[in-house]
Design a protein around this nucleic acid. Structure first.
Lengths: 331, 331
DNA sequence: TTGTAAGCGTTATCAT
DNA sequence: ATGATAACGCTTACAA
């Protein structure tokens, strides 16, 4: 029972005005009398007329959508990092009447999927895009968008990206954690993360004042389960470990859950610090110490910058959102 | 440095073919020789030509976007219920080459915002929409979409919606929790939730075999903090309480965190059961018992049904995703 | 199998 | 302030 929708032509005829006038009533820029506009808007509500957005987009070659591209570390668990970010992005976009599209891509992106993403970008569906840095695909998408002049903001650190970048300093964050462990008397550090993040490891080792080679590394993913599983490895191969920095909070929670089952006390036996400081961290038991990235603020900053770019600003200087070590009970 | 993009006309001229042929090469339905298609696609990649999606949408009056409308219970914390759902929706939409748009609306929706959502729907930006039931606005959006023939799927229970509905039985879920509490010797139940959900309360009371009036109700939100705060009220006004069903897992976690600080033992002093069974539940400490709604499966089912609707099917019978009580350590 | 040309529903330019 | 009309870039009969 699809209802035939009114076109601007039909609607204009109905009111006895021209299509141009109707268009002006909706576009809020053209010169039109307040009286006429009011009348048109009122009648539009009654008759259910709304400008067709595709026609408008085509005509103005604009769009009211923003696309967020992010690597999907797991297709079983939601990504809480992204969830916090989206909160900030959405909050900001709403102010500009924009809508958020989300486009996760698998970590191991096939050429086919990459092409699909490129198609999306090149087809001009979005007014701008936000890309989460940290995978090869991110970089490819960045270049695709750059190549066709699509406004884009990168969140996180991407090599050679000098502008339009909102970032956090992982080196610094991990440094803070390392220094804290050292200062609180820990001696046998480990780093848990699915992928080697040189900046985190580098900062961690520097904060701990220990060569990188002496810091245990383990892990093969970024989810709860990955953190949970790692305990076995640590217990078997590095039983002396007394403090652990995790690549994210979720892994830390998984790790702690496993430790609890084994009777390993947190923080007495092993001190744990997570990363990102997602909301559940403070309500965890023990309340999770974490490096706060202020993700929601980060999302807001990214959306705001993108909006500027779309508005015509060019080459926004990179914006650093300071990270902060939040000590709770787990360390 | 916006790069001038090729139009189909220019591109066709470049190859010495007609625009129709180019169009057919991309649309994968029209009659065209495999050879020609291959050539066109290859050259398109090289020259960076991609069909303009707005023009295509206008011409076919289709769209490759799906919009998810959901009430935003908090603008400070991410909504984990939605996050799990989105995982399933996205996973399914990806198979159909569709992209997900998200459009949260405030719980207390102003007429202005409601109109904005209606505009979105009426403008035909999306090929279909998914609406999370449970607020007045959900209902209004449902009616708006129904009125203009926009394919839509409702997730959850909405009065008088007989078709195109994917739902879970809150009455049953709460019943299971109530019965479990009763059977495990609890005698003083409470229900924690920001809004009175009659079905949950009803089921809970029935499962517990106690009149609704004798079940304590408390709460004023759905976030961690709300759960956290409620402990004070329970402790002060209903100290005899020995078991609690929470409206969602996040509240349960907040509540447990507060209990821990007070030295109240979970589950010995108070048994707690959450609702939704989001991923963190099993890694919480104590591992959280919860009513599983199988949210990711629910999301998949919704997206799949919507895809059918868009394909032309009408009046899909409602689909019930069974809920299940998962007992872990907190009860 | 391929080409021609008429839409698709707006907005924007130019008149009036 | 309003009207007529040419884009906007694609798809799809219809012709060849």
């Amino acid at each position: 029972m699809t209802v035939k929708k009114l076109t601007i032509k039909e609607f204009a005829a109905l009111l006895g005005v021209s299509t141009a006038t109707v268009s002006r009533a909706f576009s809020s820029k053209g010169r039109i009398s307040a009286e006429t506009r009011r009348r048109i808007i009122t009648r539009a509500k009654e008759s259910g007329y709304r400008p067709n957005i595709h026609a408008r987009n085509l005509s103005t070659s604009a769009s009211s959508a923003i696309t967020l591209y992010y690597p999907e570390f797991s297709n079983e668990e939601p990504d809480y990092f992204i969830a916090e970010l989206m909160l900030g992005i959405n909050r900001t976009l709403a102010k500009y009447g924009k809508i958020l599209q989300i486009s996760p891509f698998p970590l191991e992106t096939s050429e086919v999927i990459l092409d699909l993403c490129r198609d999306q970008i090149l087809s001009g569906a979005a007014a701008g895009i936000i890309i989460i840095a940290g995978s090869k695909t991110s970089r490819e998408l960045y270049e695709c968008a750059a190549g066709c002049g699509m406004p884009e903001i990168v969140i996180g650190h991407m090599r050679e990206v000098r502008y339009n970048n909102v970032w956090f300093d992982n080196r610094r964050g991990a440094f803070l954690a390392g220094r804290y462990f050292r200062e609180t008397g820990r001696r046998h550090p480990a780093y848990l993360g699915g992928v080697l993040d040189r900046r985190k490891q580098n900062g961690f080792s520097e904060g701990f004042q220990l060569p990188e080679s002496e810091i245990i590394k383990a892990g093969s993913g970024f989810g709860f389960r990955d953190g949970y599983r790692i305990l076995d490895i640590i217990a078997a191969e590095h039983p002396e470990t007394d403090c652990i920095l995790c690549a994210n909070d979720v892994m830390a929670m998984g790790f702690i859950a496993a430790a609890r089952e084994r009777g390993i006390r947190i923080p007495q036996d092993i001190a744990v610090i997570g990363y990102d400081d997602i909301h559940p961290a403070r309500y965890y038991s023990p309340a999770l110490s974490s490096v706060s990235l202020q993700l929601t603020r980060l999302g807001e900053a990214a959306a705001l910058s993108l909006e500027r770019l779309i508005g015509g600003t060019t080459d926004l200087p990179p914006e650093l959102i300071e990270c902060e070590l939040i000590i709770r009970e787990s360390s």
